[in-house]
């Protein structure tokens, strides 16, 4: 009387457990869920490159590693080019079936590794670049990054000096490089995440996957609410899920019924200082961004 097929919510995820227990991510870490699902999809023929980021720590102290695939720990700004170099080496030795993944946080992607990322994308190196975005330098003590959204508290934007600059739009920047594949995804939708990794694996060239990854200590949210926060980010359109092929073809992955941004903000202590007007402002700018994205979708459809 068990296992009633109609009540299955998600497609089967692979049983192989490549990311091991015992890693040192905080309880409820979104990045750990993302890595676990990504590795299940990528399989054992994978090489990962970590720049300085949470995952450089999460992976465990020497001589242990949470991921039972080869992992390279590289300098902060070099995730993309290191991965590109590993790919070049593999290509020379004729090993074509290995996924090379650069796995960087938002600091290593939006700020410090940004120049190399752009260069690597321009050269169209055959790698999967994953940015797990927890919207600040969480690992070093929650300092602001250019991925931190408007209105957010961090230790470098405390109190009334909350961040007054908007978040960089990484996908638009990468789309402007006309890379073969760029996509956003998040941990609350495993089907979507797995599908996008599968798609990235099947494409030659530079692929970027931008994962919204809730961070309970950094977002001042409850550990148990990581998936809820991730889901609300999509439902409130703060973090829409879409893909861009060849920099021009935009495709929306899902369009759930809209939820007010307030619901998303309310889950996180980093927004608790915001006044009603400021919350309305975030709603307004979210709606504008969404309208802009819809415009891209429309243009893409017209081109097709």
């Amino acid at each position: 009387m068990r296992a009633l097929p109609h009540l299955k919510q998600f497609t089967e995820v692979a049983e192989q457990e490549i990311m091991h227990s015992g890693h040192v991510a905080c309880p409820g870490c979104g990045a750990a869920i993302a890595m676990r699902l990504a590795l299940k999809t990528l399989g054992r023929r994978t090489i990962i490159v970590f720049p300085a980021c949470c995952w450089a720590v999460i992976d465990g102290p020497f001589p242990y590693s949470a991921c039972s695939v080869p992992v390279f720990q590289v300098a902060f700004e070099t995730a993309s080019i290191s991965a590109g170099a590993i790919r070049a080496g593999l290509d020379i030795t004729g090993k074509k079936d290995i996924n090379v993944v650069a796995w960087a946080g938002d600091g290593g992607t939006f700020d410090i590794g940004f120049g190399q990322l752009s260069a690597c994308a321009e050269r169209n190196d055959n790698i999967i670049y994953v940015c797990y975005d927890n919207e600040a330098y969480m690992n070093t003590g929650i300092q602001r990054s250019s991925a931190t959204p408007w209105g957010s508290w961090t230790t470098t934007t405390p109190g009334t000096d909350f961040k007054k600059e908007r978040k960089k739009n990484l996908l638009e920047i990468m789309a402007a490089h006309r890379i073969p594949y760029a996509a956003t995804t998040t941990v609350a939708y495993p089907d979507d995440l797995i599908r996008k990794f599968r798609k990235a694996m099947s494409i030659d060239g530079f692929k970027l996957i931008h994962i919204f990854s809730p961070c309970p200590p950094g977002h001042k949210a409850l550990e148990k609410d990581s998936i809820l926060e991730s889901r609300y980010a999509v439902e409130s359109r703060v973090f829409p899920l879409y893909e861009v092929e060849h920099g021009t073809h935009y495709k929306l992955s899902m369009d759930p019924p809209q939820r007010p941004v307030r619901d998303y903000l309310a889950l996180q202590g980093r927004f608790k200082h915001l006044t009603d007007e400021q919350r309305d402002f975030i709603q307004k700018s979210t709606d504008e961004e969404w309208a802009r994205l819809m415009h891209f979708m429309k243009v893409s459809e017209a081109v097709e």
């Binding site: 299955k8 995820v13 991510a25 870490c29 998936i227």
Partner: peptide, 27 residues
């Protein structure tokens, strides 16, 4: 019948297994 939430009866939907950040839940 498929609308039923099946409150309190685990139909093995795998949510707990899929979302565990620590890979601590196994089937």
């Amino acid at each position: 019948a498929k609308r039923c939430f099946s409150c309190g009866t685990c139909p093995a939907c795998d949510n707990c297994y899929i979302f565990c950040p620590d890979a601590a839940i196994s089937k």
